[in-house]
Design a protein around this nucleic acid. Sequence first.
RNA 1: GGGUGCUUAGCUCAGCUGGUAGAGCAGCUGACUCUUAAUCAGCGGGCCACAGGUUCGAUCCCUGUAGCACCCA
Length: 501
Amino acid sequence: MAEKDYIQQRLDKIKKIRESGIEPYAYKYSRSHTSNKIQETFSRLQGEEQSDVSVGVVGRLAAYRAHGKTIFIQLQDETGRVQVYFRADELGPERFELVKQLDVGDFLGAKGSVFRTRTGELTIRAADFALLAKAIRPMPEKWHGLKDVELRYRQRYLDILSNEHSRNIFMVRSRVVKEIRNYLDNLGFMEVETPMMQPLPGGAAARPFMTHHNALNRDLYLRVAPELYLKRLLVGGFEKIFEMNRSFRNEGISTMHNPEFTMLEIYQAYVDGNAMMELMEKLVLYLVKTMHGGQTLSYQGQDLDLKVPWHRLGYTDAIKEQTGIDIWQQTPERLVAICQEHGLEPPAKAGRVELVELLFESLVEPKLIQPTFIIDFPLELSPLAKQKAGAPDFADRFEPYLAGHEIANGFSELNDPLEQRRRFELQMQKRAQGDEEAQMLDEDFIRALEYGMPPAGGLGIGIDRLVMLLTDSASIREVILFPQLRQAANVRNEPDNPEKE
RNA sequence: GGGUGCUUAGCUCAGCUGGUAGAGCAGCUGACUCUUAAUCAGCGGGCCACAGGUUCGAUCCCUGUAGCACCCA
C-alpha cells in the first residue's frame, strides 16, 4: 500500500478516536514497573496464580495479536518487552473497540494484575489502558527489522527501535564514556571544556571547517583537536586534566572517519609519554574487563588479548620487520622504488618522510593486530612532541594500534617555547609548499609556553574507534548515532529556506 | 579521486534469454475468549532510484546522474 494511504488510514483512526472523546496524544501515564522489572518482580508466579497488586506499564506497541474478543499485545520500553492481555468482557465494548483501533507503533500505557499465560509468559491483564501517542506511519518489518543501511543511518530512530543490536551498541557507547569518566575521576583527573570554535585550528595535522562570527566579524575554525588549549591549562597550573568531546576534520568519510568525532585528550604534568602509555593500556583493559568480563576481545573475527603491558615497537623497527629495510639508510629514489615494489604509488612530490609514512601506513599498520604501541616517530611528523632523548630526529611519541587501526596518539609534550616556535616554522614552510594539513603557527600558544609549561605527558584517544572495538563494529557509522551522510536525493525538507520560524 | 556492486510495495526480499511485476510482513474486510513471527478466508497496494539511448517492445541491454556499500589512493 502506498505510504500516503497508510497515513490517511491512521488519520482516519485518529479522527474516529477523537470523536469518541479520547485524545490520542496524552500528557503522561503513571508507570509502576519497567518491562524487565515485571519479569524480575513476578518471576515466581505459577499456574493460575495472579498478582494481587496492579501494575502500570508504558511503551510502544511492538506486536499485536487479535483473537476475536481477546487481544494480546507486546509493549516495548527501553528495558525490553512485556505482554498485555485485553478481554472484551472485562473492558466493555467501547474500550475494546479502542484496542481494535491500535496499531503497531502506537504508544500506550496499561494497568492491571500480572499473571502467567498457559504458555508461561508473564502478562498484564489490562483492567485499564490509555493511548499515549498514535503513530501515523507504519513501523519497519517486525521480524527482520530495518536492514537498509542507508535508512538505518538516516532514520536512526527506526534502527534503534527495531534492531536490538543497534540499540545495544549505543548503550555500550554510553557506558564506555561513563566508565572512562569514572576511571579518570578516580585517578584525580579533572574534566574541562575548551573552545570548539578557535581562531586558529591547531593540535593536529588536519583540514578544518571554517565558520564566521557575525558580531565579531571574524572567521573561526571548528577545532581539529583541543590540544593547544589543554596545554595552556597546564601552563595555568592544572596538573591532571582531560576533555572528552567533539572535534571536526574537513576530510574524507570512510569506515574509520566521520567529519565530527569524539576524542578524549588527557594531560598530566610531571610525567612523560611512558606514563601515558601505561594509562592507555590500563584504561582499555579496564574497559574490556568492565564490558566483557575478561581481558580478551573478539573484533571482526580476530581475538585480541589486552593484557598489559602491550607490546612496544619502534617505528623504524616496525618498517624493518615488514620490509627488511632500514628506511633511513635509503635514498629518496630508493624509497620510491620500495613503495612501487609493494604496489604503492607515492605522490610525485613526496619527500623522504612522506614516503616513509606511506610505507608505514600501508605495510605496517594493517599488521598490527594485537595491541601494540608504535614508539619513536620521526620528529618531522610530530611538531608538538618532545624530541627523544639522545635521538633528535625522533619524537618521544607513541601510537597504540589494535586490529590494524590507530586508536590513539600520545607523547611527551614539547614544553620548550623556542623549539616549539622552530617546529611551527617548519610546519609553515610545509604549508607554503602546499601541505594543507601542516599546522599553523599559533603565537598565542607560544606565548603561553613562554610563561613556562611543566613537563607533561599527553594522550588523545579516538572514542568512536574504541567503541567500534568494544562493540565489534566494522564501520564508525555503526557507533555514531547520526553519522554524516550526503544529502539524500529525495528528502522533502531541503534546507533551502533555513530562516523559517 | 579511482574501481566494483546495490537501488523493485511502508518494511524484508524474489523476478529466467527483453514481452508492462511477485511473495512474506504490515494494511483493509470477515471468523476466532491464552496468542508468541498466532491462524484461516478474501481484498487493496508499484514513477521497478532518476534522466536519456537502443528496440516493435526495457525492471532487464547501453550511457549519464544521485544515494548507499565495499575495495583501492
